[in-house]
Design a binder for these strands. Structure first.
Length: 426
RNA sequence: GCGAAUAUGGUGAAGUGGUUAACACAUCGGAUUGUGGCUCCGACAUGCGUGGGUUCGACUCCCACUAUUCGCCCCA
């Protein structure tokens, strides 16, 4: 049997409704924040991600979907959203826009070649925002607030915001040096992964889970101690603004994030659900003041985050949060025999054009099966057209919940449904 | 890339080295029911992930592969 590729999934049924509902929420939320919708290509020149995310990051070195197109160009399925948006920002010369900052949001599939596990896929969806052009710590706080307010809006409790700062380039480099110097004598005491990280990405040693409890870790230099005055001030302001928005946060010096482009604020938003493990991190992001120049644009500050949609939906399920999705149809039409079918079909279209969600039998079911089908579809009303109905130009309509049955003139059906469906809303 | 578990019909599953692979749900047909939802009767795996091997004989034992799930790494 043909199967879907590893790490992908099909969307249909109830899950499909949830996705559409969530997408609608994202859209209205971003309208409120006055962010602009961006959609960039799903594949880009490989170079974009190599330069954007950093050659040595795991995502680029072992997780990208790469291919050569028929013109021998190296292409990569996007593993994350930021690089593409930044490319678009530069290519469309938005840095010249009079209404800075440019506030962008995006939503779409990302691809990473990884072993799938709970809440992790090879094709997965991310929702994210990016703000370009303002170095104001207020923007850091606003971006965090977008994520937090989305989670609040959906009804997630126990949201935890962890923040840290890497400082500006100078601070970050100083800190990196300090870390290398600090860990050098202890290299043999660290796990194999950490020894690897030492050369590749020393900051990541800090959030190692294996060595987390060792004293070496606890006494390691903290980013906070290596900040220059401006960086310190920036971080202080971010906290101030977060407090102003009544967003609880914790400073976690071990959050360093895996991508090379971060400077200053980095943050993660956790769901804090028991048994959810590493999936708890629903959102990650931070400020990246060097990324735009790395990709060939003018010096422009930026800050953003990404949220994993599959994780978010799984979290909602774990927390037994029901989304307000529309289940069922207003009416299901049954014709007793072939003779009434065309009337049923006409009625079906008429009702649909008048705004009702309805359906009819396409399978020539018998009456019994049709009633079953109406229940499967969660139809509020069943409309029956038989010989009598056809002859007298009336309809038999049954409330599928109260089982009350009515016979009405077919010309009143719209009014009837309008009135009766109103009762359902009360 | 590393580690672990699992793999029987549409679904959930039971099962023994040996002629017909339980059971339940779902589905379909029929009986009954004042137009279905209860009850009753009937149908429904040419096959037990794929390929090898052991055996007189394997769904049941062994090996390989594949897939799924979970964890690690990393990330969202």
């Amino acid at each position: 049997m043909l199967q879907k590729p590893k790490g992908t999934y099909d969307v249909y049924g109830e899950y499909g409704k949830k996705i559409l509902y969530l997408e609608a929420i994202l859209q209205t939320l971003m309208e409120k924040y006055n962010y602009e919708y961006f959609r960039t290509p799903i594949f880009e020149a490989s170079e974009l991600f190599h330069r954007g995310l950093g050659e040595t990051t795991d995502i680029v070195s072992k997780e990208t979907y790469d291919f050569k197109d028929r013109g021998d160009r190296f292409m990569t399925l996007r593993p994350e959203g930021t690089a593409g948006i930044v490319r678009s920002f530069i290519e469309n010369k938005m840095y010249g826009s009079p209404n800075m900052p440019v506030k962008a949001w995006y939503y779409g599939p990302m691809f990473r070649y990884e072993r799938p596990q709970s809440g992790r896929f090879r094709e997965f969806y991310q929702f994210g925002v990016e703000v370009f052009g303002s170095n104001d710590p207020l923007v850091d706080a606003e971006v965090i607030s977008v994520a937090v307010n989305l989670f609040r809006l959906l009804g997630l409790k126990g949201i935890k915001v962890n923040i840290n700062t890497l400082g500006d380039t100078e601070s970050r480099n100083n800190y990196r040096e300090a870390l290398l110097k600090y860990f050098k004598p202890y290299l043999n005491d660290l796990c194999e992964d950490c020894r690897n990280r030492y050369t590749k990405n020393p900051l990541r040693i800090l959030d190692c889970k294996v060595d987390a409890d060792k004293d070496i870790m606890k006494n390691a230099p903290k980013t906070i101690d290596y900040l220059n005055i401006e960086s310190k001030e920036h971080f202080k302001k971010v906290q101030e603004y977060l407090k102003a928005l009544e967003i609880d946060f914790e400073i976690n010096p071990n959050i360093v994030r895996g991508l090379d482009y971060y400077t200053h604020t980095v943050f993660e938003v956790e769901a804090n659900i028991q048994g959810f493990g590493s999936q708890n991190v629903l959102c990650g992001g931070g400020r990246y003041n060097n990324l735009i120049t790395n990709l060939g644009g003018p010096e422009t500050p930026g800050v953003g985050f990404a949220i994993g949609i599959e994780r978010l939906l799984t979290a909602l399920e774990f927390e037994k949060i029901e989304l307000d999705i529309n289940i069922g149809i207003d009416a299901y039409i049954i014709s007793m025999s072939e003779k009434e079918k065309i009337e049923a079909f006409k009625l079906l279209q008429n009702l649909r054009l008048n705004g009702f969600n309805c359906d009819m039998d396409y399978m020539n079911r018998n009456l019994k099966s049709n009633f079953k089908q109406s229940e499967r579809l969660n139809a509020k009303f069943v409309i029956i057209i038989g010989e009598d109905e056809l002859k007298n130009d009336i309809l038999t309509i049954k409330n599928n919940i109260t089982k009350e049955e009515y016979k009405i003139d077919s010309c009143y059906i719209i009014n009837f449904l309008d009135e009766k469906l109103g009762d359902f809303d009360e």
